[in-house]
Amino acid sequence: MRLLITGAAGGVGTLLRPRLARPDRVLRLLDVAELPDTGDGAELVRASITDLPAMVEACRGVDAVLHLGGLATEHGWPDILSVNIDGTYKVFEAAHRAGVPRVVFASTNHTVGFHPRAGHEAPDYLFPRPDTYYGVSKVAGEALGSLYHDRYGLDVVCLRIGGCFEKPLDTRMLETWLSPRDAASLVEAALSTPEPGFKVVWGVSDNTRRWWSLTEAESIGYRSQDDAEIHADEVPRTDERFLGYLGGAFCSPDLDGGGEQA
């Protein structure tokens, strides 16, 4: 199997690279940043997801794409539009043109950030209420995945990821943390589940304080092994002003992207 990973030099890509390596798998790693040769046999491609011809070439001979590439935090609209929205369109279009049968898309919990926390588990397929331009870009990515499945038959699994770091960074992440080991397990499930069609699943570990559903993720074979609670005594306290929303601090006015300048 040959797996193309976009954004492979980023935080999540770096965490997943060794965890997705298999003797029977070739990792083709793509990023605009230089990627280190770690001796794992990976194919290193320096290119931008905004370059359609380069993406088509990168997709040739690939069995699946894990699309992690893009801006991972809030930016102004022009950058979000160019990199996250148009770039994601080009990833799906390149996969289609090259005959890749499956794309696993790294979406985010910020697609639904302005949903109030209502005291019950956030369900699968929660309707979008993005909290930032970044969240809007991931809603657009999910919509593109739906279109490319329905129009072209591409299998697409969208992962609404929480916070994927070696350890949770604050008390909110005791609820939303996706451990690197569980992230790899979730990606493996998304890659191997037979004929998923189009799915949107929460990307979260089975944390004691979790308030996102794991029903759809478990339906594709995901089984969490980690719980953020073991780090509860180590993490700083989260600013509680925005904990009434699913998106937490991403709902803060401080993250107002400001729109395009006149």
Rank of each mutant, 00 (worst) to 15 (best):
L178W: 04
A94I: 02
V83M: 15
K199M: 15
T132K: 03
H67S: 14
G153N: 14
D239Y: 03
A140R: 00
T238M: 13
V204Y: 07
V157M: 11
R117S: 05
V200P: 01
G197F: 04
L16K: 05
V45E: 12
I85R: 04
L81A: 11
R129N: 04
A122P: 00
H75E: 15
L30R: 06
G87H: 10
G257Y: 14
A58G: 06
H110M: 04
G11S: 12
F250I: 01
R60C: 04
V12M: 14
A33C: 07
G11I: 07
R209K: 15
R181I: 11
V235P: 05
D155Y: 05
E175G: 06
A72T: 13
G99A: 12
R46I: 12
G141R: 01
S82Q: 15
H149K: 10
P236G: 10
R181L: 14
G13R: 06
L154K: 03
L81T: 02
A183V: 01
N109M: 08
G203P: 01
L66D: 10
G76N: 07
T6V: 05
G145V: 02
D63M: 04
S146A: 15
V200M: 13
A143C: 10
G244V: 05
A249M: 14
G11F: 08
I80T: 08
R102T: 02
E234T: 13
M1A: 14
A8R: 00
S224N: 11
G197M: 08
I230M: 10
